[in-house]
Write a protein that binds this DNA or RNA. Structure first.
Lengths: 240, 240
DNA sequence: GCTAAGCTATTGTTGAACAATCCCACAAGA
DNA sequence: TCTTGTGGGATTGTTCAACAATAGCTTAGC
């Protein structure tokens, strides 16, 4: 090839940088990590309900991986609180109790408040993501797709945290939401769970757009209180 | 043993409850988890400096565990960000850059602010822990034990987060501190790192005791800004 | 009905094996 | 001189088979 030009000098300065950023997106993951992701998905969608025992032999055979690899995947799930490991008994899909839910919502309050307080100085692109998520939730509600309303709701609140611009806060919120989905599974109706909160999300973005951060914080506070109580009472009824 | 009395009725009501809470502290852990804890300690104290490669064979032989068990332990460390896993290359003790430190301090701000805001309604026992930690730091400074000043400082700020009364927030703060220790290792002098902040911690508890939460928040804010910048500049000098 | 002993299935952990990959040194070519 | 193949060696990724330890069930005995 006669075109022996220097790549590093021939392209725009940040091209190589962007390529480097894409490096970790490319394959390069390893079986254990992929197994962990599969199990995370199955747990989130309820295919592996809370309390389910994750037999090493059965799961290993089903996924076509060895027990050792599976056990590596389990470690990640344990750290994400999606699964509990009882010594010499195995791992089980986590069962949340009302105390867990209350604590999860306490953390949500801390995280989402942080995002809210950063709204004034936040990247406009991130503020736009809020609108997109709310609009998506409303569209899904119109279509009657209540599970999608649920994920749009969570996307909105994740976008709220993202206003802070902190990768670690983002990641923690993601993990928290994965855990929270365990509680959602206990709810009988996705519609009853998510419909009442559509309007509040809309109100939060509107108040934010109007520059009324304290007002938005107030609505958010009530949102979280009510959602927490709704789930907790449902769990108590289910448990009794 | 003739004393066949019913244990559950012979002791104060919450004794068994407390014992149950201690259950997970003793034994019952498994080799992989213990290995992970050992490695966490060694990394925190700098025996395994950032950038060190954690060879499976060498570490396995040194600790007397198999490669499989070691790899399980590595998963936990990866999730805790103490270590990075590069596919087909192995795991290395994490090297933080200034962006990481800045983000860690952003999260600290969110978490410790949350604790601070809960101070008014917090458990008195938890408020007492604040005083204990500050006093411990001052005593260590008088004794010239600067590493101990550092751990007392972190204990104080963990106690600050604990005011919120959230187990998940506590755990996250613990993990964050473990990560932050990686940055502390880059500092040449433990004294230079911790001494300037002793007075501020004292001031925070005093303001809190006086009921001046906003004042305490302001001091905390400056504390975190200054500490972050101090570490970041040190890292930049070290890297250049 | 309750306790105790024994059986069975599962987990905890190890060691060995093999393929895949990376790193390094070295040679060949522009 | 700088870049580009090319082995070779070491390390990781993953599996498999084995054995000890444990939990839970079953059965026998009272």
């Amino acid at each position: 090839m006669g075109q022996d030009v220097d790549l590093a000098r021939s392209v725009a300065d940040d091209t190589l940088g962007r390529l480097a950023a894409d490096r970790d997106l490319l394959g390069r993951s390893g079986t254990a990590q992929r197994v962990a992701e599969v199990l995370r998905d199955r747990i989130a969608e309820g295919a592996l309900p809370p309390g389910t025992r994750l037999s090493e032999q059965a799961l290993g055979a089903a996924l076509g991986v060895s027990r050792n690899t599976l056990r590596e995947a389990f470690r990640s799930l344990v750290d994400g609180r999606l699964v509990v490991h009882e010594m010499n008994r195995g791992v089980f899909v986590r069962m949340l109790d009302p105390d867990d839910v209350t604590d999860i919502y306490a953390v949500r309050r801390a995280l989402e408040d942080t995002g809210l307080r950063a709204a004034a100085t936040a990247d406009p692109e991130r503020l736009a993501a809020l609108h997109t998520a709310v609009a998506g939730g409303e569209a899904a509600a119109d279509a009657g797709d209540w599970p999608e309303v649920g994920t749009a709701d969570l996307r909105f609140h994740r976008a709220l945290v993202a206003l802070a611009g902190s990768p670690r806060l983002d990641e923690y919120m993601t993990r928290l939401i994965a855990e929270l989905r365990l509680a959602f599974l206990a709810m009988p109706s996705a519609r009853a769970l998510h419909e009442p909160f559509l309007r509040r999300n809309r109100r939060i973005v509107d108040l934010l757009a109007a520059g009324d951060t304290p007002g938005a914080a107030l609505v958010l506070e009530r949102y979280l209180d009510d959602a927490c109580e709704m789930i907790c009472t449902a769990m108590r009824m289910d448990g009794a």
